[in-house]
Computed example of a mutant assay.
Amino acid sequence: MPSLKRLACVLIVALAATASAGAAAAQSTKAEKAREVFQVFQGDGLMEQMFEATFAQINAMARQANPELPNEVGEIIQDEILAALKESMPLLMDEMAIIYERVFTEEELDAMLAFYKSPAGQSMIKKMPAMMAETVPLSQRWGMALMQNLPGRVEQRLQDEGYEL
């Protein structure tokens, strides 16, 4: 009977290992899907294009503020910023995938992947840089307009509430 006990122990350990491996595989699958969302979304260097579009706006504002700035200086700054962003992108993608894995269910990740791989999702990804090029300056103008009136509005409200300024 010792061999039967040994066989039973081996089976129990094997079942436990299989169950653990199944749970790990499920988590691995979810983690892989979370990473895949970013890989699909990254298509055609989307993040790099968005950074370039954003930097173009920042560079234009810097040039307005400092018209004497040589073109080479702006190019060097842009090159180094983009190089640093590219180098750090894998770490960002890993960290974002961890958050996506924690926040979203596997079904939600599947739906995201289905959308991003669909013609509409691919169209969105391809058009995102152009959209960002338009929305960044819009957001800046909106923020500046908001900030012009906000201090007076807050001051008036505080006075209305009885606070002396």
Results as ranks from 00 to 15, higher is better:
residue 106 E to A: 08
residue 119 P to M: 02
residue 3 S to W: 15
residue 29 T to C: 14
residue 102 R to S: 13
residue 162 G to Y: 04
residue 108 E to S: 09
residue 160 D to E: 15
residue 111 A to L: 12
residue 25 A to D: 14
residue 145 A to S: 08
residue 8 A to S: 11
residue 108 E to H: 08
residue 163 Y to L: 07
residue 101 E to F: 00
residue 18 T to P: 05
residue 3 S to R: 12
residue 90 P to F: 03
residue 67 P to N: 06
residue 162 G to T: 01
residue 106 E to D: 10
residue 90 P to Y: 02
residue 28 S to V: 03
residue 117 K to G: 07
residue 92 L to I: 09
residue 106 E to N: 10
residue 28 S to C: 08
residue 8 A to V: 12
residue 140 Q to S: 09
residue 94 D to F: 07
residue 23 A to C: 15
residue 132 M to D: 01
residue 105 T to D: 01
residue 164 E to Y: 10
residue 63 R to C: 06
residue 15 L to G: 07
residue 151 P to V: 00
residue 52 E to Q: 11
residue 82 L to R: 01
residue 153 R to Q: 13
residue 9 C to N: 13
residue 136 V to E: 00
residue 118 S to M: 07
residue 59 N to S: 14
residue 64 Q to R: 11
residue 78 Q to I: 01
residue 139 S to E: 08
residue 121 G to D: 03
residue 123 S to R: 15
residue 13 V to T: 12
residue 51 F to H: 04
residue 8 A to F: 13
residue 24 A to P: 08
residue 90 P to N: 04
residue 120 A to K: 11
residue 34 A to E: 01
residue 128 M to H: 00
residue 11 L to G: 09
residue 68 E to W: 10
residue 164 E to V: 15
residue 107 E to S: 10
residue 2 P to D: 15
residue 14 A to E: 05
residue 55 F to N: 01
residue 60 A to D: 06
residue 63 R to F: 08
residue 40 V to S: 03
residue 50 M to P: 00
residue 64 Q to H: 08
residue 66 N to W: 10
residue 133 A to M: 07
residue 52 E to A: 11
residue 62 A to W: 00
residue 108 E to C: 06
residue 100 Y to I: 01
residue 48 E to C: 01
residue 39 Q to H: 15
residue 12 I to W: 05
residue 53 A to V: 02
residue 3 S to Y: 13
residue 107 E to W: 06
residue 160 D to N: 14
residue 139 S to W: 10
residue 98 I to T: 15
residue 98 I to K: 15
residue 12 I to D: 01
residue 23 A to I: 15
residue 108 E to K: 12
residue 60 A to Q: 08
residue 96 M to R: 03
residue 119 P to C: 02
residue 58 I to V: 10
residue 31 A to T: 09
residue 8 A to C: 09
residue 2 P to F: 13
residue 152 G to S: 05
residue 121 G to N: 03
residue 3 S to V: 13
residue 96 M to D: 01
residue 135 T to R: 07
residue 57 Q to H: 15
residue 128 M to F: 09
residue 143 G to C: 04
residue 158 L to C: 06
residue 95 E to T: 12
residue 30 K to F: 04
residue 145 A to G: 05
residue 92 L to W: 09
residue 162 G to K: 01
residue 45 G to E: 06
residue 22 G to D: 14
residue 23 A to L: 15
residue 5 K to H: 11
residue 38 F to S: 05
residue 88 S to E: 10
residue 109 L to Q: 00
residue 91 L to E: 13
residue 158 L to G: 02
residue 117 K to H: 12
residue 39 Q to F: 11
residue 135 T to E: 08
residue 162 G to N: 03
residue 53 A to K: 05
residue 22 G to P: 06
residue 102 R to L: 06
residue 62 A to F: 05
residue 17 A to W: 11
residue 24 A to K: 14
residue 106 E to S: 11
residue 131 M to K: 07
residue 107 E to M: 05
residue 7 L to H: 11
residue 122 Q to Y: 01
residue 134 E to L: 12
residue 106 E to Q: 12
residue 63 R to A: 13
residue 126 K to T: 12
residue 31 A to Q: 10
residue 129 P to T: 04
residue 50 M to A: 07
residue 141 R to P: 05
residue 127 K to S: 11
residue 114 A to E: 11
residue 40 V to G: 00
